[in-house]
Design a protein around this nucleic acid. Structure first.
Lengths: 336, 336
DNA sequence: CGATTGCGAGAAACCGCTTTCACGGAAAGC
DNA sequence: GCTTTCCGTGAAAGCGGTTTCTCGCAATCG
C-alpha cells in the first residue's frame, strides 16, 4: 500500500538533460565549489525543468545524513499538553524546515540509556536531538559521547556540559519581585516551582536577590513551595496566608500556581490586587483569562524554539556553540 | 559533522552469524511466512546477539516505505499553541511509535498544492499524512489521488471523501444546552465559533436541536457569533446582554469564549451562575482555572489522536476505514 | 620547452536493505 | 516410477544518491 508517487526524476535524468555526469549533479546539488559555473547553471536549470527533489532515503543512505532532527519530549506527565512546549516546538519546526531539516517528534517516556528511544537516537537515524525538560543527564551524556549533536531546551543541571537555550528565569523573577516592591508591597512572598528543576531554583534565586536589594532579607515564612500545578499554588498560598502575617505581594513561579493562589486569596476573603498583589510567570493563556487579569513574566517562547533550532544547525555545521539565554519581560495587567 | 555512531551491524553479519543468506534475514525481519522455523530462530538470536537495528534509510530506499508519518499543522494562527493540538499529537505519536512508525511534525502555513510541503508529501518522503484543522481540501484531494494514505483530525467539509476522526461536537453541544434547560434556564443563548468550520457549525446545530426539543425555537437574538477567541466571546456576550433580554444561560462553543463571556457578564454587574449560567466546550485548562470553575464539554483528546493514528495504520495495512466520531462528556463545575 | 602541479569532471564502487528470479529438492499427481 | 507443482532459499540486481579515485588538460615552474 505504498503511495504510487508521481514518476520521480533521478540524477540519471538530470545528468542527461544537463549533459554532465551524475557526480557533477551531486556536486552542484551539494554546493561543491569546484564546478564550472556553466555546468552549475545547466544542472540547476535541469533540476528546475524536471521539478527534481532529492530522495531523502537515498541521500541518507549514501551520505549518512538523514536530514532529521529528533525533538524528544519526556511524556511522564503529558508535559506536552502544556501549550508552552507546543509553542517551542513550532518555533523549532519552522527554523529547521527553513534549513531543509525535518522535525521528528518523539513524545515518549524517556527511559534508560538502553530503551528503544535511546537506540533509535544512537542508531544514526537522526542527525541530532533536541531535548525538553531534562531530568536525567545519563542518556544525553551517552549520546554526546557518540558525537550526536544535542540541544537542551531549559537549563540542565550540569550547565557547562551541553548546549542549551533557556529564558532568563532569574532575571524574570528578579524583575517581578522588584516590581512588587515598587508597587508598595512590604512583605513579598514567593510560591516556588519544583526547586529540583533549574527553572524552579533560578526563579527562587531571582526573587531572593531582588528581596535583598530592597534592603531586607526574605523570611522563610515568605517562601512556600509548589510543584507548578494550580492546586499546589492554592495550597501554598493558603500556607502563606497562615504563616506570613501582613503578606501583601506574591510572586508565583508560574501562571498556573498564580491562578491557584488567587483562588486561595479569594477564599480567605481578601482581594487581588487591593490586599495582595500577585505576579505569575509564563504569560500563558491562563494569565490573560484570569480575573483579574494576571500580571506575568513573558517569555518569547517561539524565539526559544528558534534558538534551539539555530543552535542545532550551528552544531551540524561543525561550529562551536554557546548556551543562549533569552530575555524575559514583565507584562503588567491588573494583579500588580 | 555526522555522528560517529557505534559500528553498526548489517545483514551481512547477521547472515554469517545465523548461517543463512541475507535474503532470508530480510524475510525473517519483515515477517515473511515462508521461512523454516529453525532459521527464523537462528536469525532472531543473531539479531539479538548483535544488537541489530534496521537502517531506516537503507530500508526506505529499497522498499519505498519510509516508516514516517507526517503530522501537518496549518500554522496560520499558531494553532499549535492550543494545548488541544499538542495533546492530540502526543496521542498520535504514541500509537505510531508502538507500531514502529515515526512522527514527522510539519508546522507550516499550509499553502497551495504546489508549495514545498505539498511536494514533500507527494514526493514519497512519508508513508502517510495526518492533517489538523483543515480549511482547504484541494491539497488533500491531490494527495489522495496519489494514493497517499490520509487521515484528518476534525471533520472535513466533504465528509464522505476522507477518513477522519472527530469529537461529537453536535452531541456535546446538545448535551450542554439540554443541561442548561434542566438547570432551570429559560432563555439559553449560544456564542458560536467560526461557523465556517464544521465544528462551529455542528455545535450550533446541537444547540438548536436541543433548544427545539425543549419545545421552543431559539430566537436569532440568542445567537451571537464569535471566532473562538476570548475577546470575541466577550464581545459576543456583550451583544447578547444587550439584545436578548432575560437571557439566563449561555452555551459558548469553546472555553476561551466562555471565559470571555464571563468577563462581560461580570462587567455588566451580573453574576455567574446566579444570574446567567454558562457552559464551555473543550474542558481545557482555562475551564479549570476560571473563577468560578467552568462547566464544560470534555473531549478525550488523547483518544482522538490515538484514533487518528489507528486509522492511519489501518490504511497502511490496506484496510478500508470508516470515520471515527468520539463521544464527548459534560463536566459539571460551578458555572452551570 | 619539457616536467610538475592543480583543478574540473567522469567512471565506478558503495551505502544497507528489498525483491525478483532461478534453482534444488520434496510433495503431489498421473 | 516419472513428471509437475510447490516451497524454501540463495544469488544478484537494484533503490537513488555520494564519494573516492583517476584522468586529461591547462597553468605553472625550472
Amino acid at each position: 500500500m505504498a503511495a504510487k508517487s508521481a514518476p520521480r526524476a533521478t540524477y540519471a535524468e538530470i545528468a542527461k538533460t544537463a549533459a554532465v555526469s551524475e557526480a557533477t549533479v551531486s556536486r552542484v546539488l551539494n554546493g561543491d565549489e569546484n564546478v564550472h559555473p556553466d555546468r552549475i547553471k545547466a544542472v540547476n536549470s535541469a533540476v528546475k525543468k524536471l521539478g527534481y527533489k532529492k530522495h531523502r532515503a537515498a541521500s541518507a543512505l549514501a551520505s549518512g545524513r538523514t536530514g532529521l532532527i529528533a525533538v524528544v519530549i519526556d511524556d511522564d506527565l503529558s508535559i506536552f499538553a502544556d501549550p508552552f512546549w507546543a509553542t517551542v516546538t513550532s518555533g523549532i519546526s519552522r527554523v529547521l524546515m527553513e534549513n531543509e531539516l525535518q522535525t521528528l517528534l518523539m513524545v515518549t517516556p524517556l527511559e534508560s540509556v538502553d530503551g528503544p528511544v535511546a537506540h533509535y537516537l544512537m542508531g544514526g537515524e537522526v542527525d541530532g536531538a533536541i531535548f525538553f525538560q531534562l531530568h536525567k543527564d545519563a542518556l544525553i551524556k551517552r549520546l554526546r559521547k557518540q558525537n550526536l549533536p544535542i540541544v537542551i531546551t531549559g537549563t540542565p543541571h550540569s550547565r557547562s556540559d551541553f548546549p542549551f537555550v533557556d529564558t532568563d528565569s532569574f532575571g524574570g523573577a528578579h524583575a517581578a519581585t522588584k516590581h512588587l516592591f515598587s508597587r508598595g508591597c512590604k512583605q513579598v512572598g514567593i510560591i516556588t516551582g519544583d526547586i529540583d528543576t533549574t527553572a524552579g531554583a533560578a526563579r527562587l534565586d531571582g526573587y531572593s536577590q531582588a528581596y535583598r536589594e530592597s534592603g531586607h532579607v526574605p523570611s522563610k515564612k515568605l517562601i512556600a513551595s509548589g510543584d507548578w500545578s494550580m492546586e499546589s499554588g492554592r495550597a501554598a498560598m493558603a500556607r502563606l496566608l497562615e504563616k506570613a502575617e501582613g503578606i501583601d505581594g506574591v510572586f508565583a513561579s508560574n501562571d498556573l500556581m498564580a491562578v491557584g493562589a488567587m483562588a486561595a486569596i479569594e477564599e480567605a476573603g481578601l482581594r487581588v490586587p487591593e490586599d495582595i498583589k500577585i505576579i505569575g510567570f509564563d504569560d500563558s493563556v491562563v494569565a490573560q483569562a484570569a480575573r483579574p487579569a494576571l500580571t506575568s513574566v513573558r517569555q518569547d517562547i517561539v524565539a526559544l524554539g528558534e534558538a534551539a533550532a539555530e543552535l542545532m544547525i550551528a552544531q551540524l555545521r561543525g561550529e562551536e556553540v554557546e548556551p543562549r539565554i533569552l530575555k524575559s519581560e514583565l507584562v503588567i495587567r491588573e494583579t500588580a
